[in-house]
């Protein structure tokens, strides 16, 4: 099986739909198959990485727990759209894991340099 690099783009808020969890499941599966994975968070997707989440009152599992396991799966390249952070008044220091804040041109570059792009 030949290797390919995967870029997974997630653009939805952490709760309210299953999109965030579904994107993480795909990323982890790619990692289990030993394929290099980059995650890119855009739009409301940047909210997924906020530290200190407590979704228990709405009956949801805390995404932070799964996100913390990403480095164990060698998923270490996490990119967030700089404009999406700015639009929501967020700083990278508020996020759970170290991230690269990327500008629009860099996002085009990210898409170009990966073999497979999956949007969830």
């Amino acid at each position: 099986m030949s290797g390919k690099s995967f870029l997974i783009i997630s653009r939805s808020a952490p709760y309210g739909s299953s999109a965030a969890r579904d994107a993480l499941d795909v990323a982890l599966t790619c990692a289990v198959f030993e394929q290099p994975v980059t995650l890119l968070f855009m739009d409301d997707g940047v909210l997924q990485l906020l530290a200190g989440q407590d979704p228990q009152p709405i009956g949801q599992k805390n995404l932070n727990a799964v996100q913390q396991s990403l480095p164990l799966y060698d998923i270490e390249r996490l990119c967030v759209c700089r404009a999406s952070l700015d639009a929501r008044g967020l700083e990278t220091q508020q996020l759970l894991l170290p991230v690269e804040a990327v500008a629009a041109e860099a996002i085009a570059q990210l898409i170009a340099e990966h073999d497979v792009v999956l949007s969830i």
Partner: peptide, 22 residues
């Protein structure tokens, strides 16, 4: 079948197109 079949499809195919991703 499992999500591994999605990863396998990405590895074996020249193009992967998603519908309803947003």
């Amino acid at each position: 079948s499992g999500l591994g079949q999605l990863v396998d499809a990405c590895l074996q195919s020249d193009r992967v197109i998603t519908f309803g991703g947003r």
